[in-house]
């Protein structure tokens, strides 16, 4: 039961994020939703890498036991870095849009349509 809890939380986070992106009209809040999806994916990745009783794969004076394969942790770190870059880029886009359009409402930021 508790073993599955992180996966449930990860799925909930993704669903929350997607719902935010669908129902919030403010562009900043949509990006917050996107960040929630990203957090959910990161949590899923880390939970997949969890091994009960495993130890960190640091060889210097390591205690006895099974070492954890650090692939997913590395993936999570990479995704966090990518996420920072994306969020920064998106927020700067919204900044420029707000300055030029005077609004960050998705229903008004629609000069491109049809």
């Amino acid at each position: 039961m508790f073993f599955n809890l992180p996966f449930i939380v990860a799925a909930l986070l993704v669903i929350l994020g997607i719902t935010t992106m669908l129902i919030k009209r403010n562009l900043i809040k949509m990006i917050m939703g996107l960040a929630l999806v990203e957090a959910g994916v990161n949590l899923l990745l880390v939970s997949i890498g969890y091994r009960a009783g495993g130890i960190a794969p640091i060889f210097t004076s390591a205690p006895d036991g099974v070492m954890v394969m650090p692939t997913v942790q590395a993936m999570t770190l990479t995704n966090i870095v990518i996420g920072i870059a994306t969020t920064a880029l998106l927020l700067s886009f919204v900044m420029v849009i707000y300055r030029m359009y005077g609004t960050a409402n998705a229903e008004k930021v629609r000069k491109l349509r049809g």
Binding site: F93, V94, V96, I97, M100, Y101, V109, K111
Partner: peptide
């Protein structure tokens, strides 16, 4: 700002 809208 229109190009930024597209980029966003």
């Amino acid at each position: 700002g229109v190009a930024v809208e597209a980029g966003l």
